[in-house]
Amino acid sequence: MAVLLLAEVNDGELALDATAKAVSASKALGDVTVLAVGASAKAAGEAAAKIAGVSKVLVAEDALYGHRLAEPVSALIVSLAGDYSHIVAPATTDAKNIMPRVAALLDVMILTDVTAVVDADTFERPIYAGNAIQTVKSKDEKKVITFRTSTFDAAGDGGSASVADAATAEDPALSEWVEDSMAASDRPELTSAKIVVSGGRGVGSKDDFALIEGLADKLGAAVGASRAAVDSGYAPNDWQVGQTGKVVAPELYVAVGISGAIQHLAGMKDSKVIVAINKDEEAPIFQVADYGLVADLFEAVPALTEKL
């Protein structure tokens, strides 16, 4: 058995946390070959070679892969798929876009958001927004999998895998990149942060979200938001925590003005310690919180920011 693992590479830089978590998820499945793809991917490939448990790194560096569009990257993975029993990736939006296309090209079913590996054919994944956990056994010869990173620990460093170039595949020429609109931030990345402070509809406006950001900055935390806050325009889409947004499991999750819809809980209930601040004592978020505080967030959050 052998694993081909699509590394998460953003603008030439390896997303180490997501990639290392996928490496540890793959450990039981065979020798891990990491594939680094991008317009610039060499440095990312070299960084991936240092992850413990990686036996080989393939680098596919070409302008064609600059924005990791699904069509050319899928064609590349399929061209390399031959010897591998498992083709895997961390469940980022990039991989969620690419991997089902790879699976269909190989005529196999995809396994998305896998949270546990039972054996080489059998996996656990959440369904119904995490309200049920399904154990499924794949009958396909090759398995194509995305791993939900929040449930795996990152593999350590100390690896010294060999790095080789991969031949580029044909360009399907179906799509082109136009632009990115990504906010630069000094804050930690949401899915790998040790502490996350999230705001919900209760925050009330985009301006008042500064309160949430102030508390986050005091704690060195990432900022998250509920779907309601994003839908209302208080926070950008990449802050959304939940079943269809990002799934996080930090040491500390502070939920402010979030009622706790099941959709949101699915994205944060594996956090080690949950603090909830809400003025409605009936809010369902209190049923999962380790520490609940019934208070007006406009008084409690500034006080908390000051006292920490």
Binding site: N10, H67, L69, T92, T93, D94, A173, L174, S175, E176, W177, V178, E179, D180, S181, M182, A183, T191, P236, N237, D238, K246
Partner: peptide, 17 residues
């Protein structure tokens, strides 16, 4: 079709045939 996509880092716009 010109599509603005919700991705991990924010929004990405692509043009597809």
């Amino acid at each position: 079709a010109v599509v603005k996509r919700e991705v991990d880092g924010g929004l990405q716009t692509i043009k597809v045939k």
